[in-house]
Amino acid sequence: MPAGPHHGSAPATGAPGPARATGRAAVEVVELAKRYPKAATESLAGVSFRVEQGEVFGFLGPNGAGKTTTIGILTTRIRPTRGRALVAGVDVVADPVGARRVLGVVPQTNNLDRSLSVRQNLLFHASYHGVPRARRQRLADELLEQFGLADRPEGRPDEFSGGQIQRMMIARALMHAPAVLFLDEPSTGLDPAARLFLWERVAELRSAGTTVVITTHDMDEAATLSDRVAIIDHGTLLALDTPAALVRGMTDERTLDCTVEPEPSADPEALDAALRALPTVHATERLDDPSGTPWRIRVYVHGDAAASVAPVAQLVGAAGARLTDVRMGEPNLEDVFIHLTGRALR
């Protein structure tokens, strides 16, 4: 039976869960706020959260929600107005140099060194971080291989596609083996294949135990990659949980999209009435032209959608028709977002 549209063949969901450390958090943020000079309101209005070690943590929100400001503070590039932020136990305000040792950043836009080749970009980055020469050479070759860049290590960044640039920046960020990797809107502007490749690499990082903090305004990306998702809007944290729990917590409404092949004698009105009489069903809707065949009916149910499949099939049979396909629809993060903010994300 097909799964819901937003929980498809996710590379991360198949991976074994990381061992959750009970001790120090990978990222700890307490009442973090930022007001930019001359701004009327706070871009970040007292946000608190914790990212566990080995977790993929998704930051979901529209543009201007405060995602990039949060990442900017955590990566020592923006000074908070108030609050506290620790990365791998290092206070990013009190010890920015120490924090930069343990974090890696993949920015939204290409900031590769255009005067250097791909391989040199990796090597020089590692040298800034004090990775010994022999080790950085070996590491660069391994990462170029892993990120599918080994065939043109001497090419200049300008000669590569957006997806390859993105991979180069991730490989570069991994050269100093950061404890926490920050990915800011990583798949913006990537084609579907490049996006999938990126997702697979993130899933690999997660299985290797690297903590990944990822910002996105893409529902699929947040749901697919993240162990937990923080929904942020207008500088405020609206919700924080696993994608499944966020969806579950919002509503227990599910949908069953049924395709029904009717006999000539079958009466759609009667079937409709019978379906609505079921205790778990609270509404039905025709998705196609009511005069056409097969019928496509959406059934809104409470609770476990799978439990409603059998009674629905029985009623369809009793109405002189045949159920040929059922698709269970879960509400997705987009619904959660709309529920929380009253508007669509994009």
């Binding site: 080995g54 791998a88 290092v90 083996a177 950061p178 290797a208």
Partner: peptide, 18 residues
Amino acid sequence: GPTGAPEGPGGPGTLPHL
């Protein structure tokens, strides 16, 4: 691969810095 680097003081995956 390289992401499975030995543990350093920063947590799993970090380098033992010089």
